[in-house]
Computed example of a mutant assay.
Amino acid sequence: MGADSPVTITVEAIVPSSVERIWSYWTEPEHIKQWNKASDDWHTPYAENDLRAGGKFVSRMEAKDGSFGFDFGGVYDEVNVNESISYTLGDGRQVKIVFTREGNDTKVIETFEAEATNSVEMQQAGWQAILDQFKKYVETAEQQ
């Protein structure tokens, strides 16, 4: 498959909260640092987010034991408050997140272009795990 037709992967979850609250949990750095991990042996000690078209974002994702870490970041292409976010990662891949109200819940759908290093299955599992951590974080926060 050539560079002109990247593989796209989609992950999704239905999260039990209003789209307005989901938006805050998804976009505010103090929340991002709480949920942005694929497993409990990882964490995000730093996050910044300039949420506007042309704005940059970065989250530092690290193994808690210090064995590995990386910056996940890019530039926003389009931001529609409480509806969708599109951005370009530092390596040029495109990502789109759509937030859809479903009664008292919100459906979050992320579609992203796969990178060439890891298998599609591994990437899908990793991004789904992070989205599942987001859902778990929201569920806990909403109970407090």
Rank of each mutant, 00 (worst) to 15 (best):
residue 2 G to T: 09
residue 2 G to H: 09
residue 2 G to N: 15
residue 6 P to T: 09
residue 6 P to A: 07
residue 7 V to D: 07
residue 9 I to W: 05
residue 11 V to I: 13
residue 12 E to P: 06
residue 12 E to D: 10
residue 13 A to S: 12
residue 15 V to N: 00
residue 16 P to N: 12
residue 19 V to H: 04
residue 22 I to F: 00
residue 22 I to C: 03
residue 25 Y to M: 02
residue 25 Y to D: 04
residue 29 P to A: 04
residue 31 H to N: 14
residue 32 I to H: 02
residue 33 K to Y: 02
residue 34 Q to A: 11
residue 35 W to D: 03
residue 39 S to F: 00
residue 39 S to D: 14
residue 43 H to D: 11
residue 44 T to W: 01
residue 44 T to F: 02
residue 45 P to M: 07
residue 46 Y to P: 03
residue 46 Y to D: 11
residue 49 N to L: 11
residue 52 R to D: 02
residue 53 A to F: 08
residue 58 V to R: 15
residue 59 S to D: 10
residue 61 M to E: 04
residue 62 E to F: 00
residue 64 K to E: 05
residue 64 K to L: 03
residue 67 S to M: 05
residue 67 S to C: 05
residue 67 S to E: 04
residue 68 F to L: 11
residue 72 F to V: 12
residue 75 V to K: 14
residue 81 V to C: 10
residue 81 V to L: 12
residue 82 N to Q: 14
residue 85 I to H: 00
residue 86 S to M: 11
residue 86 S to W: 02
residue 87 Y to S: 02
residue 88 T to I: 14
residue 91 D to C: 01
residue 91 D to I: 05
residue 94 Q to F: 09
residue 94 Q to E: 10
residue 96 K to P: 07
residue 96 K to Y: 01
residue 98 V to Q: 15
residue 98 V to G: 09
residue 98 V to P: 05
residue 104 N to A: 13
residue 107 K to P: 08
residue 108 V to N: 01
residue 111 T to N: 09
residue 114 A to H: 06
residue 117 T to H: 13
residue 117 T to C: 00
residue 118 N to E: 12
residue 120 V to Q: 15
residue 122 M to W: 08
residue 126 G to S: 08
residue 126 G to T: 04
residue 127 W to I: 09
residue 128 Q to E: 11
residue 133 Q to D: 04
residue 133 Q to A: 11
residue 134 F to L: 12
residue 135 K to H: 00
residue 137 Y to M: 02
residue 140 T to R: 15
residue 141 A to L: 10
residue 144 Q to P: 04
residue 144 Q to A: 08
